[in-house]
Each structure stands twice: as structure tokens, then as C-alpha cells.
Design a protein around this nucleic acid. Structure first.
Length: 588
RNA sequence: GCGGCGGUCGUCUAGCCUGGUCUAGGACGCCGGCCUUCCAAGCCGGAGAUCCCGGGUUCAAAUCCCGGCCGCCGCACCA
């Protein structure tokens, strides 16, 4: 039995061969930060590109990608609720040093809900009720605030310049909703995608490259009309897909068995509340599968109501089973409904509504209030100017309400008494062909580095004591290796030519002539190169090469003129062994 | 944040308890040469170590002591 965990093996390989390693190593390293090496960058780029393919390019009529700053003024994250909710209140025991989340402690000891209380309120409760350390009875410290947002200042250090590094890309899409909606000619549904770095100042990240303080997020904020979701694509494309869902209900019962269901059924049976959330979960399932994770090794786990983020009505985490942690969340699918747009409207007064064209024009009876400016002038003389100013501050229906609720013949507005008869109410009928509404939002959100780890772990295999990284060819960092069978002319010269040809064709290629041929295959296998081309003695006379398939070690002979084509098809996922070329040298 | 354990070439490790003989040994990998007609073969040679960092004790520290960083495990935390 091997006692070394797969995680350790994967990380050892990843470090040794240049996929990733801890940042600032020569300074001792800093927890929560990882660097990507040459192969890591290629692999990540390929994963990002595959995501783009699945989520953006295949939906380019209605999903577009943008890029917004990482540094975010504090106002924005105040509006989004992060400044408030991204904070933990903690107390520690002055005797044994144990750390508690203040609200949880109060709830546990007193049985009262303390979530959402302010720092002062929490302090007061702890002092008044004389709450002590549950473990050792020691006295508790003052409540401290842990803000999980990284802070900075835009320009000079001063409170109004406070800013944070974004903890999610999403706010960039919400604040730009109106602009992109205009650019997309005011059509819904509309997906705004963004791939970028985010930062979260985790208190103590201790899960290697899994819990990072800075990472790459791939998100879509998908805006749609709740009354007319236009989600036909769910029925067209996801009718036959099966996804596995562990529902909140099942979890509440203590169960851990996901149900298997089509996204369509999940939506229609109200397991998933939003049709678009269901659709993107369908795509997410396919996407993670394409990274090499078998379908039966992943599922969606619904969050319990108390686990939901402040902005979410319903959330499913996409879980992949991994060696070390069992469950690893690789994506989150949140039904953010109207929360974010409404908050930004409230904080900025900006109009972030979408327009809905009504099937039939609606006649709306409206009572419009008018006032007699001449009479106001007569009554107030030079002061009339002030009166008009005050009146203009009030919306029509607010004024109407004031007048109707005031007793007597006068109405007093901000200290100014006006006789009611200066106002006249007119009934008007208006024909409306459109109405404003706040779009609902479904958000699929992926962590690129976690996907990278998952891809590595599922690709990692050992055969005959050597490592073979069976990455799907689509995401393999290096697509093809070229070897001269022996280091002799004219074989070497021909191999070099093949190498140049493949580079010219746009592939990442390695050329290796050192060591035995077996050693070179092994080296290429270890970094997941899916195809290895060998130029042998026969190649000279026949003008062909052998192409070896990494996973089966089987070879085919291919004329040089067809090599690029075969590799291209292989990268797309076709089995090159069945491409119709004669199999000649097969060495298991 | 707390407690326990740990940190030596790229990787794995010997040495640490019992300080000097360690200008730190080995294996694998890497580089060069020979050999080699397809799966980590063999032989020869070579490069490669801030002994995690800082301070202390000592004539002398990889080794003992203190602090820090990082990692693992447990507790706590995880929008």
C-alpha cells in the first residue's frame, strides 16, 4: 500500500515539472498564493479557453465578455453588501487563545440569533451576559472585526479614497449592466461574462492551491426577464443530459445521496428555481466533464437557507470528488434574482431597469396633479420662487397623497401652508407599450485554479511505476513531442524538420533527442503530451513517421503531409488510432 | 488565531538525540560523452544544497535554545 496521498503525488509532479508552486518561495513562501509555471500557464489558458468556448462562444448571440478593474471603490462594495457581509466578528479567549465567531458564540450560549448585529451590540451582549470562553471559562477579548476584503486607497490615503480588491468579478457586470444592455440593443436575455483575478483575505488558508487569497474567477451574470425567460435553449439542448443534485431538503434530512435528473426536469419540478440557472448547470456539467472528470464523480449540492450568501435566493455548488478533501467546490451557481441591480439603484439612483414590450398596449388611468402658478404668485409674491422649488421636489403621487391626507382647506408642505384649491387633479389615460422591470440574474461562477487542480488529479495515473498524465488533449499544455529514434543523421535532421513544421502549424511542441526512446516517451507522458512522433529509419525512405497515442501507447504510421491534420483531429478528441491509417509498430 | 509535529541539492532522503572528522553522504532526476532500430537499459564524467529565515549559546551549530515564516494534523474560521 502506498501511504502517499494522491494530492501529494499530484502536487509533487506539479511542482517538479513546472505547473505550479507556492509563491515567494525564496522568502519562505506566503500562505494562500501560488505561482503558475510554464506548463501551468499553458494548462490554465487552455482551461480558460475551453470555458470561453462552452460559456461564451457557443452563446455569442447573447453572452458577451467584458473586463473591469480589480480595484473597486468602497461605495460599490458597500452597495453590493460585501463590506457588511464579508466581515466576520471574532472574539478570542484571553486565557487559552481560542477564537470564536462572536455571533455564533452568542447564539450557542444564549440561544438568540446574533447574526447581523454590530460590533458594539455584540460587545454589549457579551459583557452584560458575562459570556466566557466555553472551553476554559477564561475571559473574552473585545470583539474584533475581520474584513475579508483586501483594502487599499485610490490615490492619497484618505477615508473617501478607500477601496478594496474585488472579491468577485460580478460587481463589474452589475455596474455595467445598462451600458452593455444598450450595446446589445436592449435585448434580453443577456449574459455578461468576465474572466479575471479576485482577492479574498482569508484568515488562514491551509489547503494549498485550493483556498487561495488571489485567484482567477470565470463568471457570467445572466440577466433575463422573469416573466418571459426565453429559455427554450434549456429544452433544446439539455433534454437528455443527466445532472446529479443533492437537494437542500435531502441534506436537511441528513441524506447525502444526489438524485439524477435532467436539468429540464429539475426546473419543471421546481428543484431549480430559475430556468437559466438550470441551463448553466447543464453546461457546467458538460464543461467539467470535458476537463476529464467522470460524470459520476461530480454533483451539485444545494446550499441550505442559512448557508446562502447575502445576495442569493438559491445556490448550487458544483462538487467534484477529490482525493484529499473528498468534496471540492469548483463552481457556484447562484440565483441572485434582483438583489444586486436593486442595491446599485438604491445607492446610486441610476436607472438599471430593463424594458419589457407589452404584448398589448395597456391603458393606464393616471391622476395627474397640477398647480396654479399664477395663484401661487399672487399669494406669495417674491417668495413664490421658494414655493416652486419645494413643490418641484415632490413627485406627483407624493403631492397627491399629502393633499388627500391633510385635514382642512390647507396643506402644509415643509412649513409652507398652501390652500388646497391651488391644486387641480386631472384624470389622464396613458397608453403604455413598454414597462420597466428589474431583470433576474442567474450566475455561474468558476474558480480556474481549482479546475486546474481537478484536471491534474483526474489526469494523474501511474503505469508500470511511471507517471502518465492523461489530460484531455484539448487542455494538454504541450500537444505533441518529436523524437528522432536515434541521434544519427539523417534521422535527426528529418525530426527537426517535423518539429519546425508542427510549430509552424501553431502547436506547442517539444523536441527531445536525449536518452533512450523509452525515457523520452516517459518524460512526455509525465507532462501529459498526448501525441509523440518518432522519426525512424523507415521514415527516411517512406517519408512518414509514427505517431504514438499517450494513453494506449499504440502507434500509427502517417505520411508527413498528413501529420498536422491527424494531430489536429486528435486534439479535438478523435481517436487517432481509428483514423484509418495503417497501424504498423505497436509496442505495448 | 491557538496547540502538536515538521522544514537538508529539482525530488526523496542520511546526518540532528550524543555539537568538531559535514569544504553535508546517497538515490532518482538533470546535463555531457559512449552505446542504442520504439517504451524511465548499461558504462563513464559533470553540474546541482541560503542545511527555511533571524537572533542566541559555544572556541566550534545542519545539530542545542529563542523568535519568525511556511507546511501537515487537531480546534476555530471558510461571505
Amino acid at each position: 500500500m502506498n501511504t502517499i496521498s494522491k494530492y501529494d503525488k499530484v502536487m509533487d509532479l506539479a511542482t517538479r515539472r513546472g505547473f505550479l508552486w507556492q509563491s515567494y518561495e525564496i522568502y519562505g513562501g506566503v500562505a494562500g498564493f501560488y505561482d503558475l509555471g510554464p506548463l501551468g500557464v499553458l494548462l490554465k489558458n487552455n482551461i480558460v479557453e475551453l470555458w470561453r468556448e462552452y460559456f461564451v462562444k457557443q452563446h455569442q448571440e447573447f453572452v458577451v465578455e467584458i473586463e473591469t478593474p480589480i480595484i473597486t471603490p468602497a461605495h460599490v462594495l458597500r452597495a453590493s453588501g460585501h463590506e457588511e457581509h464579508f466581515t466576520d466578528f471574532a472574539v478570542s479567549c484571553t486565557r487559552c487563545g481560542r477564537l470564536y465567531r462572536a455571533d455564533h458564540l452568542i447564539k450557542d450560549v444564549l440561544g438568540i440569533e446574533a447574526e447581523g448585529l454590530t460590533l458594539e451590540e455584540l460587545n454589549t451582549i457579551i459583557k452584560e451576559k458575562n459570556i466566557r470562553c466555553p472551553a476554559c471559562g477564561g475571559e473574552l477579548s473585545e470583539v474584533r472585526k475581520f474584513l475579508l476584503l483586501f483594502q487599499t486607497y485610490i490615490g492619497p490615503y484618505s477615508p473617501e479614497n478607500l477601496a478594496y480588491l474585488r472579491p468577485e468579478a460580478a460587481q463589474g457586470m452589475f455596474v455595467n449592466f445598462k451600458r452593455v444592455y444598450e450595446v446589445m440593443r436592449r435585448k434580453l436575455p443577456l449574459g455578461i461574462a468576465q474572466i479575471g483575478r479576485v482577492a479574498r483575505n482569508e484568515i488562514s488558508p491551509r489547503q494549498g492551491p485550493i483556498r487561495l487569497r488571489e485567484f482567477t474567477i470565470m463568471e457570467i451574470e445572466f440577466f433575463y426577464d422573469d416573466k418571459n425567460p426565453q429559455a427554450d435553449i434549456l429544452y433544446h439542448r439539455c433534454q437528455d443530459d443527466k445532472i446529479r443534485i443533492l437537494t437542500a431538503e435531502e441534506r436537511r434530512r441528513g441524506g447525502d445521496k444526489p438524485i439524477e435528473i435532467t436539468p429540464v426536469e429539475a426546473y419543471e419540478s421546481k428543484i431549480i428555481l430559475s430556468p437559466w440557472l438550470a441551463y448553466w448547470m447543464c453546461i457546467a456539467n458538460r464543461f467539467v466533464h470535458a476537463l476529464g472528470v467522470p460524470l459520476d464523480r461530480m454533483y451539485f449540492e444545494e446550499k441550505l437557507p442559512e448557508e446562502l450568501a447575502h445576495y442569493s435566493k438559491q445556490t448550487f455548488d458544483q462538487i467534484v470528488i477529490v482525493d484529499k478533501w473528498g468534496k471540492l467546490e469548483v463552481s457556484g451557481h447562484a440565483y441572485r434574482h434582483t438583489y444586486d441591480l436593486e442595491r446599485h439603484m438604491k445607492f446610486t439612483k441610476a436607472d438599471l431597469y430593463a424594458i419589457r414590450h407589452l404584448a398589448e398596449p395597456v391603458r393606464v388611468k393616471k391622476r395627474v396633479i397640477k398647480y396654479d402658478k399664477k395663484r401661487i404668485l399672487e399669494i406669495f409674491g417674491p417668495q413664490a420662487r421658494e414655493v416652486f422649488k419645494v413643490l418641484s421636489k415632490y413627485q406627483g403621487d407624493e403631492l397627491l397623497k399629502l393633499i388627500e391626507t391633510s385635514p382642512g382647506d390647507n396643506v402644509v408642505i415643509e412649513g409652507i401652508a398652501l390652500p388646497k384649491d391651488v391644486f387641480t387633479v386631472i384624470e389622464e389615460e396613458e397608453v403604455q407599450t413598454v414597462e420597466k422591470f428589474v431583470p433576474h440574474v442567474a450566475e455561474p461562477s468558476f474558480g480556474a485554479e481549482r479546475l486546474l487542480y481537478v484536471a491534474l488529479e483526474y489526469a494523474y495515473t501511474e503505469e508500470d511505476g511511471r507517471i502518465v498524465l492523461k489530460l484531455p488533449p484539448r487542455i494538454a499544455p504541450i500537444k505533441v513531442a518529436v523524437f528522432p529514434l536515434v541521434e544519427k543523421e539523417p534521422i535527426v535532421q528529418m525530426a527537426r524538420k517535423v518539429y519546425e513544421m508542427l510549430k509552424e502549424a501553431g502547436f506547442y511542441v517539444i523536441y527531445d533527442e536525449s536518452g533512450s526512446i523509452g525515457r523520452r516517451y516517459a518524460r512526455a507522458d509525465e507532462i501529459g503530451v498526448p501525441f509523440a512522433i518518432t522519426v525512424d529509419y523507415d521514415s527516411i525512405t517512406r517519408n512518414d513517421v509514427t505517431i504514438r497515442d499517450r494513453d494506449t501507447r499504440k502507434q500509427i504510421r502517417v505520411p508527413i503531409s498528413d501529420v498536422v491534420k491527424v494531430i489536429e483531429r486528435g486534439i479535438k478528441g478523435e481517436n487517432i488510432l481509428s483514423l484509418g491509417y495503417p497501424i504498423v509498430g505497436s509496442n505495448p
